[in-house]
Computed example of a mutant assay.
Amino acid sequence: MPDISVTMIVVLCAAAAAAGWIDAVVGGGGLLLLPALMLGLPSNVPLTHALGTNKAVAIVGTTGAAVTFARKAPVDVRTAVRIGLAALLGAMGGALLAGVFSKDTMRPLIMVVLLLVAGFVLLRPSFGASAGGGTVSRRRVAAAVLLAGLGIGFYDGLIGPGTGTFLVLSLTALLHLDLLTASATAKIVNVGTNAGALLVFSWRGDVLWGLAALMAAFNLLGGTAGARMALKKGSGFVRGVLLTVVVALVVKLGLEQWA
């Protein structure tokens, strides 16, 4: 493990706990966790080590949240696992190509998509308020496997910001889920995206396992607490956090774009 002060380790563990909570409720914990690692690690540590360590930490909290949701939320685990396996493959492909595409060229596109998402959620207060009801067609499940699984999984391995948020929105739209059930389903899929990227980063030797293990314990606590709060508060609470995270993502990407 790199030479990091005790104070910085405490800060990183606190960031891991907060990121776990955000991820469990609506996704987007990487907004906090990855920048914290980039700032907290010594300047001589490669960026890829921050990316790999981020995935090693995030997968623990996401798994804890997924288990909590699966026990208490009306999740179609079989469908979620199918999408998650596709997401694992997509994330592996994205991680292998990480660095090929310039993030500077991707940020404006991501910002536009997020602004459209925020506008849609604001103008459609009924979006995700309740489930559509009835059996979801095979065509919609197949679309979710391709778009939410392979597509967003690839994006997570390649770039990453807002993956959980995109998963919640796409699953709500494609499978006619309420936001709480979509968030619960997204956690299972997100385990797949994190696992796929982590496999590649591990193979490359880009994970600081000692630091990751310590931070992961706090991420797990935050993720479990966030999942329980989302289950208690319901879809309205998830919608509020969703909008907050989307706005935070846009601000963060905007600052990076024009810095």
Rank of each mutant, 00 (worst) to 15 (best):
75 V>N: 10
2 P>Y: 12
167 L>P: 01
167 L>Y: 09
125 P>D: 08
174 L>Y: 11
159 I>V: 13
64 G>R: 11
193 T>P: 00
57 V>T: 04
83 I>C: 03
231 L>C: 06
169 L>T: 13
158 L>E: 04
232 K>I: 04
174 L>A: 12
229 M>V: 15
72 K>S: 14
91 A>M: 03
40 G>D: 12
154 F>E: 02
17 A>P: 07
60 V>Q: 00
178 D>S: 11
222 G>R: 01
81 V>A: 01
147 L>D: 01
53 T>Y: 13
254 G>L: 08
180 L>C: 05
74 P>H: 12
55 K>P: 00
235 S>Y: 13
34 L>E: 06
69 F>Q: 03
180 L>N: 07
232 K>Q: 07
65 A>G: 00
40 G>M: 06
121 V>K: 14
65 A>C: 00
216 A>N: 00
170 S>D: 04
240 G>N: 09
247 V>H: 07
196 G>T: 01
45 V>D: 10
44 N>Y: 15
94 G>D: 07
136 V>G: 03
131 A>D: 15
167 L>R: 02
47 L>T: 06
90 G>E: 02
37 L>H: 06
253 L>K: 08
203 W>P: 01
103 K>F: 08
245 V>I: 07
133 G>Q: 03
174 L>E: 05
143 A>G: 09
187 K>P: 00
78 R>K: 15
101 F>Y: 11
192 G>V: 05
227 A>K: 07
139 R>L: 08
30 G>Q: 05
96 L>G: 04
130 S>T: 09
209 W>H: 06
197 A>T: 00
119 G>V: 11
25 V>P: 02
34 L>V: 15
186 A>M: 01
46 P>K: 11
71 R>A: 10
113 V>A: 13
43 S>V: 15
118 A>I: 10
253 L>V: 04
45 V>C: 12
218 F>P: 00
55 K>N: 04
102 S>Q: 13
126 S>N: 04
112 V>D: 10
245 V>L: 04
234 G>K: 12
15 A>V: 01
188 I>Y: 12
74 P>T: 09
225 A>C: 02
186 A>H: 04
133 G>L: 05
170 S>V: 11
116 L>V: 15
154 F>C: 00
81 V>L: 01
149 G>M: 00
3 D>G: 09
192 G>I: 01
56 A>T: 02
1 M>F: 12
57 V>W: 15
138 R>Y: 13
246 V>Y: 08
108 P>Q: 11
195 A>D: 00
192 G>W: 02
203 W>C: 01
4 I>G: 02
19 A>G: 05
64 G>Q: 07
73 A>F: 12
106 M>V: 11
160 G>Y: 15
149 G>W: 04
232 K>M: 06
62 T>G: 01
207 V>Q: 14
245 V>K: 05
148 A>P: 02
89 L>T: 14
164 G>C: 11
24 A>G: 07
134 G>A: 05
221 L>E: 06
213 A>L: 10
45 V>Y: 10
201 F>Q: 04
62 T>H: 07
121 V>N: 13
59 I>W: 02
158 L>R: 06
110 I>S: 07
241 V>F: 15
175 L>A: 11
242 L>R: 00
211 L>N: 03
124 R>F: 13
191 V>C: 14
170 S>P: 01
68 T>E: 04
122 L>F: 10
48 T>Q: 14
222 G>H: 06
123 L>T: 03
124 R>G: 08
148 A>Q: 05
35 P>C: 06
233 K>M: 09
219 N>C: 00
22 I>D: 02
